[in-house]
């Protein structure tokens, strides 16, 4: 209910169309990367800033071979008690490796990326002009074919 109230009273940037990259590849040959907005980061990395009410528009790079025990969630705007028990429910880092092992996908990129999804007005520009383009360019330079994005 609180979430619905937040959605009703928040302003979102609205679009009337979407960018589009046609997908015609064989999935079993594709390289896949994950991007989450669940506030996941390596325990050794700087946590997302929870003091700024407008959020934190920065991102964290997560090595694909990170273990769940290496990861932490810093995000005060959703209940991550279950994700703390099993990070795969918001960031399926182990599940994508299993899809690779069973040859359902070709490869897992050597890195994934994580944001903190509660980003408001004055940080939106940083997100759209700096952080997200940097992540997109990194994924492109890694020759990633598929990105799966998971919210929280």
């Amino acid at each position: 209910m609180l979430f619905r109230k937040w959605v009703r009273h928040s302003t979102f940037i609205e679009f009337s169309d979407s960018p589009w990259t046609p997908f015609e590849k064989d999935i079993s040959t594709c390289r896949l990367a994950l991007v989450t907005t669940g506030g996941v980061h390596l325990a050794l990395q700087k946590p997302f800033d929870m003091k700024d009410p407008a959020g934190d528009p920065t991102f964290r790079e997560i090595p694909a071979d990170a273990r769940p025990a290496d990861l932490k969630i810093t995000h005060n705007y959703y209940d991550h008690a279950d994700a703390d028990k099993d990070v795969n429910i918001i960031f399926p880092i182990e599940r994508v490796q299993e899809l690779r092992q069973s040859s359902e996908i070709g490869d897992v990129n050597h890195r994934h990326f994580s944001f903190m999804g509660h980003i408001m007005k004055r940080h939106i520009n940083t997100l759209m002009k700096e952080s997200a383009p940097r992540v997109a360019a990194a994924l492109k330079s890694d020759h990633v074919d598929i990105v799966i994005l998971t919210p929280a």
Binding site: I13, F15, S18, P19, W20, T21, P22, F23, K25, V35, T37, F115, I124, L127, M128, A132, P133, V135, A136, A137, L139, K140, V144, D145, I146, V147, I148, L149
Partner: peptide
């Protein structure tokens, strides 16, 4: 918003 920017660089996203 992040998804739109990644897709716009030429990577298929879902």
């Amino acid at each position: 918003l992040i998804q739109r920017i990644i897709e716009a660089t030429g990577i298929a996203t879902i």
